[in-house]
Amino acid sequence: MRSRLFFASLILALAAATAHADTTLLNVSYDPTRELYKDFNAAFAADWKKQTGETVTINQSHGGSGKQSRGVIDGLEADVVTLALAYDIDALNQHGGLVPADWQKRLPDNSAPYTSTIVFLVRKGNPKAIKDWDDLVKPGTAVITPNPKTSGGARWNYLAAWGYAAKKYGGDAAAKDFVSKLFKNVPVLDSGARGATTTFVERGQGDVLLAWENEALLALGEGGGKDQFEIVLPSVSILAEPPVSVVDKVVDKRGTRKVAEAYLRYLYSPQGQEIAAKDGYRPRDQAVAAKYASKFPKLPLFTVDDTFGGWQKAQTTHFADGGTFDQIYVPGK
């Protein structure tokens, strides 16, 4: 009898604790956003407290974009996803209908509150005189980029090179030839963007690293690499739009839709944009962009939608099994 009472009170206590527990959000993100969301979560929690009086705790999860998306499909209860490319959020729609098909239209700017681009990180003094994409296919230049099959960032690298060549040399056949030559110069294919940065920075492999602009800025700044490396901006690159979305099935189940949506909208606010710019992402907001103009030099950027007809098409053509990337390596095709 006594023990039964004990258990009953325990269950009641637990129930009371959960009812009064503060709201938590889980943001499932990709690899290089650690620093960004560490800063942003603190700012949002403070703002939310001021607006509503509620305490919200945001938990973060980071990893390769595709892996993270698969985690959410397999049951990781993410309230929001902030991934490297739209294809990985499309997958949430195709496998299990976690988000509606038109998720990307729900927020401004293709649901990408900040952007980035692909730049070159070279060794100090630029000994191989690497100025543009053409220098990457020269014999004797070693290029470090991760494997586009396993890294979202690497897909942006691949498409940036492809888009450049298609424009300059006219057509997909020429672009394929160019990208094949480029990958012949790649001695190591790491599985993720951080791994490739380590290979270039710590292991001293390669002459040039194709990197997210924010990763390159981080390597120069916090990485303390100012005397070892420098950033080279190519003549043209790709507009990388890492998108964000609420995961509808999860927020409706957990009752966190309101705060999750506010969380994403805060990314578009001047405060959110300022944090993004500080951590190396190009802000969408014109005023904030003007303030950080010297950090993010202007260069012509093309988009996946214009040049490749969207991520679904780009994925099937280039990165699916038997796509152009596989054809580079498999002989006789």
Binding site: G64, G66, K67, R70, N147, V188, L189, S191, A320, D321
Partner: peptide, 30 residues
């Protein structure tokens, strides 16, 4: 292995990496 392999397709790509690559393309069955 993954750190030391270089992971070049047809040369130094191990079968477990191929499995991971397929998973990242949402090709569970493959």
């Amino acid at each position: 292995v993954i750190f030391i392999a270089g992971n070049m397709p047809m040369v130094s790509e191990i079968a477990p990496l191929l499995i991971v690559a397929k998973l990242d393309g949402f090709d569970y069955a493959g």
